[in-house]
Design a protein around this nucleic acid. Structure first.
Lengths: 307, 307
DNA sequence: CCCGATTACTTGACAAAAGCAACCAATAAC
DNA sequence: GTTATTGGTTGCTTTTGTCAAGTAATCGGG
């Protein structure tokens, strides 16, 4: 039997935190989404493809109510539904690019609020706060979130600079590639930004714990009509092993197929062994290989996937 | 600028605790009150008399909405309204006995839930939990609750036993009174329980942090018609200085006036100095004094207040 | 003391959020 | 093949909350 003062302390804390959260959530008010809608978007952003029933279960929502929310999301172009081929009653739900962007905005707003709150504390106090929260979570048995611990979103301003920088740093660190690699990446990035065609091209940024940890882009092939090219694939070392690379590659395939391309190709280098696995598993096969002239020591390869 | 991982930790905790609270609040569902209604009752129970505007401000409720809630509470007999004499636009709101009882039920239900939750933790872990919660509250600047830190409620089964026990223990400890005092109190309690007349009699228990800390009762005078008697006033030493005694005495006056008595009387002893102040401030005056035969060394006094 | 502004509260109309129940189509179970 | 179950949608209702207007009392000058 717990002590009465403990019980009351917990109740006081609950009241306090409820109010605290209430204040935070009011920030959502100047978005076009209700709180529940926000939760739905959050959940969608953190899953690759779910069904409505799943979602309803997770969020404790009435099926009818959720159905309407999803329909409105569909109308607003945030969510796309795809009949499951295994069970044609089910719809596999996923966020569209607009949906991902909408979530990114919500997410950024929420993050800014928390940051503003934290900014008022000293670094020590921030640490103590996070520590205390962790204690509570573990004591009250927060099970580790079974969602994917990252989100994908379209690129925003500033992102491409990050993409370039990390390409340069990582490929130098991991493979010792020289500046010509950086120059090439810079050219790709510049071209992407200058000629970006939202209908036929796309870039995804993977974000984890508020930090960018991965990227990939689909662009039109410079010469071959109806052919897409996958470029700028990157996953930060500390975020590897979570399936982010696989997800990024897959996202490209889905987009390219949907955009009407008949083929998607990519260039890679024989030294990039782990990437090779991703491409193979996605269904790509190598179509040509030749000595790499510009950087490194491996051979340049072209891989292709028919859509 | 806070570190990104900290921000994300705080967000994760907020999600976690939101969900946690959600589960707890579902317990309210098998009560006849909505969440908002519950909050209103809570607030009313923790204030002596408030105005609707005050309440709305505190809870962030729309005035119109609150007005309707209060009207329905009025209809259900939970709340009574009294025009302020200082400002006749205002209504002073307070819970009726039924209202207090309703709150006590809600409160007990909520407490049971928390207790069940705590019961799964070792005592050490409970301590760590409460500690961590305290840390968060102080870091996030919970201002000390400005509400009265106790609530009043009608007596429930078991309470009268507590009243008797504490009378015996406290008067012995503080004034060295002997068993005859206990016997007298027992008789009063027994008579109260056996002949309890809900229309004309009432007992209040003051509760703080989930523990009983005070009591008082109004009963019909045994001989004089139209006269009420205040009995069994008690405040635990550790809860003194919070105005609980004063509040209890005042509650009696209000009730007696409302129940139609023309006078309320009480017996006390000259050694009970602090109680004397309470009675004086409430408007009582001493009407007789004679040597105390039964216990202690002081003189027995009768005080009276015309209603 | 008078008059406009403000405050405390109420009311009506309405919108948003949520829940319930009936229903359809696809699938699973027998 | 028939029945039950599942995934989802739709119509209807209740609950919850907002907005604006209205009333009475009070405040704040001149």
């Amino acid at each position: 039997m717990p002590l009465a003062p403990h019980t009351e302390s917990v109740r006081r804390f609950s009241r306090f935190y409820t109010r605290h959260i209430g204040v935070l959530q009011e920030g959502l008010l100047d978005s076009p989404y209700s709180l529940t809608e926000g939760r739905v978007i959050y959940e969608l952003a953190h899953r690759e493809e779910t069904t409505a029933t799943d979602l309803g279960q997770e969020l404790g929502l009435d099926a009818g109510y959720l159905s309407r929310i999803l329909r409105s999301f569909g109308r607003r172009g945030l969510v796309k539904k795809r009949r499951s081929s295994a069970d044609r009653r089910r719809q596999l739900l996923s966020l569209t690019a607009e949906g991902q962007a909408a979530f990114a905005r919500l997410n950024a707003a929420s993050r800014n609020q928390i940051e503003a709150m934290l900014a008022e504390l000293s670094e020590d106090d921030q640490r103590r706060l996070v520590q205390a929260m962790g204690t509570i979570e573990s004591l009250l048995g927060a099970q580790p979130e079974q969602r994917v611990p990252y989100i994908l979103r379209p690129h925003q301003s500033g992102d491409m600079g990050w993409v370039l920088q990390r390409h340069a740093v990582l490929y130098r660190q991991e493979y010792g590639w020289d500046e010509s690699m950086e120059a090439l990446a810079a050219e790709v990035v510049a071209h992407f930004l200058r000629h970006f065609d939202a209908k036929l091209e796309r870039c995804w940024i993977a974000e984890k714990d508020g930090e960018n940890v991965g990227s990939v882009a689909v662009v039109k092939h410079r010469d071959r009509a109806g052919v897409a090219q996958l470029r700028l694939l990157l996953v930060e070392p500390k975020a590897r092993g979570l399936g982010i690379g696989r997800r990024l590659v897959h996202e490209c395939t889905r987009f390219a197929r949907h955009a009407g391309y008949h083929t998607i190709v990519l260039w890679t280098d024989s030294v990039l062994g782990s990437a090779r696995r991703l491409y193979e598993d996605e269904g790509y096969h190598m179509v040509s290989e030749e000595p790499n002239e510009s950087f490194g020591e491996g051979t340049a390869q072209v891989w292709e996937l028919s859509l």
